[in-house]
């Protein structure tokens, strides 16, 4: 198992308030890593640090480093835009562009300098996200007319169309019903063959079902990190056990 993302002694601040404390974590290639923890513990913050999305928020700063493929993405000479081309993101609320389905997929690829066959790209990404059969006859209608679950699969398709190494997902199913959730989960499991995935979830069953390893955060601190099975069956920390069994959070 090869490690792809290493987070080392990472601190993160919104203005004066510190949201992440000395986080050290390792995520492996072609695995699904889950981030769990109660609301406000810093899961989203950590996720957004992995593609330097937090650079877009005013008055934030970080200490420590995160390496992806042995490259420190927090060096001064690193361009955050380039980082985001390698590390894609899927958000909590489906947010397709108010453009056609086709344009949603093609736009990101184009700005990333994709010069191949666009039809092939659209068909293959939509097929891999299990959306092709549902939308192949309406590629040129506005993506906002799709259902929530379809929109979220389109957002995943859009993210993989730029061929990232890593995909970050922030509670990708929290706005969806159980059926749509199941589809997305099987899609995510399918995607790990090609991508490394870090997923934030509030749903313990989901973390248990799909992830290979799990990190439990509390108040910006990593309490426990390990193989999902072990974390769920034999947590070493009392806090972890309490959280997983639903005693707080």
């Amino acid at each position: 198992m090869k490690s792809i993302i290493q987070i080392k002694n990472f601190n993160f601040f919104y203005g004066e308030s510190q949201a992440l404390h000395d986080v050290t974590l390792d995520f492996n290639e072609n695995q699904i890593s889950a981030l769990i923890g109660p609301s406000g513990c810093g899961k989203t913050t950590l996720l957004r640090c992995i593609n330097r999305m937090n650079d877009l928020i005013d008055d934030t700063r970080s200490e420590g480093n995160i390496t992806i493929h042995e490259k420190n993405i927090y060096l001064a000479e690193v361009d955050p835009v380039e980082v985001r081309r390698k590390v894609g993101m899927v958000f909590q609320k489906p947010n397709p562009f108010p453009k056609t389905i086709w344009d949603n997929i093609v736009w990101g690829a184009k700005i990333n300098g994709y010069t191949g066959n666009l039809e092939e790209l659209v068909e293959s990404t939509l097929t891999r996200t299990a959306l092709w059969d549902e939308v192949k006859d309406k590629l040129h209608t506005n993506a906002l007319f799709l259902s929530g679950g379809q929109q979220q699969r389109l957002c995943i398709a859009r993210a993989i169309a730029i061929k990232p190494d890593v995909i970050l997902m922030d509670e990708p199913t929290s706005a969806l019903d159980p059926v749509a959730t199941a589809r997305i989960e099987s899609l995510i499991t399918e995607l790990k063959k090609r991508y490394s995935i870090v997923i934030v979830t509030h749903n313990m069953q989901q973390a248990g079902r799909i992830s290979d390893c799990t990190s439990f955060l509390l108040n910006g601190v990593v309490v426990e990190h390990g193989r999902t099975k072990e974390i769920f069956l034999n947590p070493k920390e009392k806090k972890t056990e309490e959280y997983i069994s639903g005693e707080f959070g």
Binding site: M53, E82, N95, G108, C155, A159, I162
Partner: peptide
């Protein structure tokens, strides 16, 4: 969230 979607794609 549309801006974020776009930045997230490396725009």
């Amino acid at each position: 969230n549309l801006r974020e979607a776009s930045f997230g794609l490396g725009a």
